[in-house]
Write a protein that binds this DNA or RNA. Sequence first.
DNA 1: TGACGTTATGCGATTATGCGCATATCCTTA
DNA 2: TAAGGATATGCGCATAATCGCATAACGTCA
Lengths: 93, 93
Amino acid sequence: MKALAHPVRVLLVSSLTEGEQCVCELNKLADIDQSGLSRHLAILKKAGIVSDRREGMKVFYRLETPCILKAFECAVDVVKADVKRRNDTLKAV
Amino acid sequence: MKALAHPVRVLLVSSLTEGEQCVCELNKLADIDQSGLSRHLAILKKAGIVSDRREGMKVFYRLETPCILKAFECAVDVVKADVKRRNDTLKAV
DNA sequence: TGACGTTATGCGATTATGCGCATATCCTTA
DNA sequence: TAAGGATATGCGCATAATCGCATAACGTCA
């Protein structure tokens, strides 16, 4: 759970749901220092959420657990419910 | 996501999947200072994961988002996969 | 082998989290 | 209104997470 507690890591996982990607591609997504990106990926790997594969100079990361998508969907639901609640509160006024 | 990044909070949510509970009951589960518990619950509430309801002196918390169970199941899968991987590595030696 | 592209790691500084104590707040009941 | 139980909050300290820079490690190709 801690491994997903950072916006950049959520972004990374989210991007990897579309398939394997190398660090260089991920680096374009996240506006962050390269060393930081590498660290975030290491955290996800240590947590068993992603795995890596070397191919030439590049390292490719891929999602190890597709079920994580459901967790994200739930998170989206939570946010939606929150928005709805705020709206209802506004209307009530 | 951050809201679930602490073992105590995972425990709390997990316990709340069984139904509404008051702070006093939750306090028995988590071996933690009462003020800390209150803070953790506040974090979950702010994240929209739980909601509270006052009834006399006691405050009852309940899960706002049952789908969170799926997220936990996924976490369990990740851990299981990790254990399996370790075993396979051992066997290979 | 040497230069270069890609990714990882060591380190120090900064910031965010969590904890425990004391205390405030809210509610009930005498 | 006063006392007491249940819960929340202010504060200071300790620890952990993150960041950016510099540099190391790894692989390729001339």
